[in-house]
Computed example of a mutant assay.
Amino acid sequence: MTSAPRDSSSDRPLLALIMRLAGIAGFGLMGAFIKLASETGIQIAELLFWRQLVAIPILLTWAMLAGGLAQLGTRRPKAHFVRVAYGVVGMVLNFGGVILLPLAEATTLGFTAPMFAVGLSIVLLKESVGIWRWSAVAAGFIGILIIAQPGNGQIPLFGAAVALGGAFMIALIAIQIRDLSRTEKPLVIVFWFSAGSVIVTLPFMLWVHEPLTAYQWWLLLGMGIAGTWGQVLVTMALRFGNVSSVIVMDYSNIIWATLFGWLFFATLPAITTWIGAPLVVLAGLIISWREHYLARRAFVDQRQATGT
């Protein structure tokens, strides 16, 4: 799943790292709000609805400040529809993983997305995968087994399966967004995903909605703001730094998840998570490094072939 290196004329690597780190902190806080809200009895369909509805006015304001609402237009509604379909399924699974598992374990299993991406690149993109990426996949799989401890009962296997399903959807969505990004700006992709998700989840929300307390409304508002904050900053970080450079910050989410798990739920990761998580993180970093290396090599080969 390699891609050509971006134009480095606007690179501001330190700013990119800070923005990515702050964005990932937003996602970590969103996970805590999701878990807190679910514990009050709010159904997952309503969580999805409010997560995206809160984002829409923020994104509309961003569009107005960036040049007007006209830039939200698209000529690829079918591709956005597919993005919404994938995204809603992915949110159900990722939110479900957070609800069913401790935050740190759910977050760590989410880091398996790069491993699923390797498999999808073979099936969908017909790429050849060498020893480096296969070794990373093997290391990550061992890490998953250590964390999940099948048959041990330390963490719910159904919850682990849901979290892994969410990671698979993240990998699938990444490939689909890569295709959309050829013609669409990040703001357009994010806006139509939020708008489409609201439309899809509205009927379910009307079915499960019950009167909410002030505390529940604050949790939903916090979830929506934290999620949008994370989405915007993570996207904007790519304007100032290479994916291969800033993606390292994504793994800081295990720190945020551990911190928020301790602060809000008085839980700390099990010893098996401390052992398995480094293997999963290492696998993701190796795959990301290999993607960057292959992209750079393809770029150099192309320049040499054209004599530029």
Rank of each mutant, 00 (worst) to 15 (best):
G140Q: 04
G140I: 07
G140R: 09
G140T: 09
G140A: 09
G140N: 05
F141E: 02
F141S: 09
F141G: 03
I142E: 06
I142D: 05
I142C: 11
G143R: 08
G143A: 10
G143N: 07
I144K: 10
I144P: 08
L145S: 06
L145N: 05
I146M: 08
I146V: 15
I146Q: 04
I146P: 06
I147V: 15
A148H: 02
A148S: 13
A148F: 05
Q149L: 14
Q149A: 14
P150I: 09
P150R: 10
P150H: 10
P150K: 12
P150S: 10
P150L: 09
G151D: 06
G151I: 13
G151E: 05
G153D: 04
G153I: 11
G153Q: 08
G153H: 09
Q154R: 14
Q154L: 15
Q154E: 12
Q154V: 15
I155T: 14
P156N: 08
P156Y: 03
P156G: 11
F158H: 12
F158Q: 12
F158W: 14
F158G: 11
A160K: 03
A160M: 06
A160C: 12
A161K: 02
A161P: 01
A161E: 00
A161V: 05
A161T: 06
V162W: 00
V162N: 02
V162F: 00
A163T: 01
A163Y: 00
A163I: 01
A163C: 06
L164I: 11
L164A: 06
G165R: 00
G165D: 00
G165P: 02
G165K: 01
G166N: 05
G166D: 01
G166R: 05
G166T: 09
A167T: 01
A167V: 02
A167P: 01
A167M: 03
F168S: 02
F168D: 00
F168T: 01
M169W: 03
M169P: 03
I170D: 06
I170P: 03
I170K: 09
I170T: 14
I170A: 12
A171P: 07
A171L: 07
A171S: 12
L172E: 04
L172A: 13
I173R: 10
I173V: 15
I173S: 07
I173N: 11
A174I: 14
A174S: 14
I175G: 06
I175N: 05
I175L: 15
Q176A: 14
